[in-house]
Design a protein around this nucleic acid. Sequence first.
DNA 1: GATTGGCACTCGAGTCGGGGGAGTGCCAGA
DNA 2: TCTGGCACTCCCCCGACTCGAGTGCCAATC
Lengths: 337, 337
Amino acid sequence: MLEDRRLAVLRAIVEDYVSTREPVGSKALVERHALGVSSATIRNDMAVLEEEGFIAQPHTSAGRIPTDLGYRAFVDRLSGVKPLSSAERRAISDFLAGAVDLDDVMARSVRLLAQLTRQVALVQYPSLVQSAVLHIELVRLSESRVLLVLIADTGRVEQRTIDLPMPMSEDDVASLRARLVAMALGQRCAGLADHLTPLVDAAEPDERPAVAAIVATLIEATADTVEQRIVLGGTANLARYRDAFAISLEPVLEALEEQVVLLRLLGEVSGDMTVRIGHENPVEDLQGTSLVATGYGRGDSVVAGVGVVGPTHMDYPGTIASVRAVAQYLSRILDDN
Amino acid sequence: MLEDRRLAVLRAIVEDYVSTREPVGSKALVERHALGVSSATIRNDMAVLEEEGFIAQPHTSAGRIPTDLGYRAFVDRLSGVKPLSSAERRAISDFLAGAVDLDDVMARSVRLLAQLTRQVALVQYPSLVQSAVLHIELVRLSESRVLLVLIADTGRVEQRTIDLPMPMSEDDVASLRARLVAMALGQRCAGLADHLTPLVDAAEPDERPAVAAIVATLIEATADTVEQRIVLGGTANLARYRDAFAISLEPVLEALEEQVVLLRLLGEVSGDMTVRIGHENPVEDLQGTSLVATGYGRGDSVVAGVGVVGPTHMDYPGTIASVRAVAQYLSRILDDN
DNA sequence: GATTGGCACTCGAGTCGGGGGAGTGCCAGA
DNA sequence: TCTGGCACTCCCCCGACTCGAGTGCCAATC
């Protein structure tokens, strides 16, 4: 009972602070929330909450603001999920349905998510490793130059120009293309290396260097070290929080421009909703921000992540709902593919 | 002679203001530049320059800062181009040479340019309209669904999934693919519509709807309304100029996230170096910024633009040099393609 | 024992009022 | 035409001060 009220106070503090972005005092709290007790009682509760590390004072004689731990408790124990309005759901669905190819889906998603949450949105391209080969094309550009195009069933297209160690005729290329397609079609990209080495071994000695070069490129293109791409958008929303970040937003923007950093952020995301608050974040420059992310994919295999980065004092219930909704629609689009 | 000195003063003011970002006074000017006259003389010159609109005072009894007009004169009449060091040139060349496909070239260029200029970089994908068809692929996904892939000689790849109005067999698809390739290979994308309508007319009546649908998609995909893409990077650099923009950088960031806006910026760029200073900018939210841009392409056909957006008090000679260098290397890569 | 009203105290934010200083415009003289 | 000198203007910085929101603590009350 007593514990319950203390949590209610924490919840009220988080909600007020999120909406006003100003330290909240005991008096204001009593006025804005029907807590049924006096401000003095709240003060006692606040003292306890502060001792437990859920809230803090910017300076003596100021109101309280939630700590990372406080937000954590809020997210874990206090916040329901704010359901989206049907209008919002329809907007999402309509907007994404208009996409014309995978690039377009990614671009639209990131834009949409940024708009919905008014924060920085991240969307990861479907992992190649998790995809299957839909088609392979080999185009002869010149005597000893070919263009290799790999199309995955998730819609991803990878292309590489290859300088061959020897000339190949139009027929050689066509024949190799047929063999490649026969061996690789429908295979998971992850296992391509195993499936294609026999093809190199079986090649005539005089064309083996060329085949080896092409297969090597194909394997390199599907290696998980290079195949990851993340698009981001809504950085303008960061500017609105100019003063919310301890020092400045420059390091934050810088961190967000690093693909490596983004991969670290979204890399460990699973199908569940992941919320990383402030210092829980593995990236140092982003420890003043929170990440809300989840995975999307076909059926129950997660092929990539989608999420949002914003200030720790974000609207968690609303953000979680938006991220979840966009992930659902992304999954649906992949399924329809 | 007298006129010459006045211009020298303007030049000195621009240079000092760009490097210090503080209003520059007559005394400091005499100390830092060997102008050979006293500060009083400079004051007179400054009064004239102010009357002519090249410089302004933030308030009485402060130093002068250049106006947009002042920068314009500086760029047009005063600034040489600062040549890049050979180390810089090598860095550019090495960095871009490592790119693995067009997406990679674009991503690396934008990153590179942002780093060189410490500003926001824009790079436009080669225009499809200006490209020629290198290859067309048709992949049968299911009875009445095909995937169309268009590869342009600039490295661009467009893909569309098409729901056919009727089922097509594997053989039908293969035959149509062959006809498409025969008709379109090597053609400019701009003229595709004309080249492909005969193909629709020549089709057997029973497959005509499918052929029409596919050709229509192909034409739509190469239409210049949808084919434009611009990548941008280095927005973190904007944050360093936080207070340099009259109001705030939020509208600037917002404008830069709009593809439409970016297209307006780079759309009118020709092969020459284009410099738009402050209010000369067609986009209202960017009238506190300057654009330095140029075109790149194969031979002398410009296929796309590349440039930089930054504060009006940017280092124009240095920025121009960097943009030009990156454009040159981009052109070279396209040529090598 | 929990709750409450009261009260003294703290400290940040905002205001006001001078110096100090950089910079200007102007003028008379070279 | 240039220069040195001089009076003047204002911004910026600093310290002192007030105001008020908010706290912690305590004795009284339910």
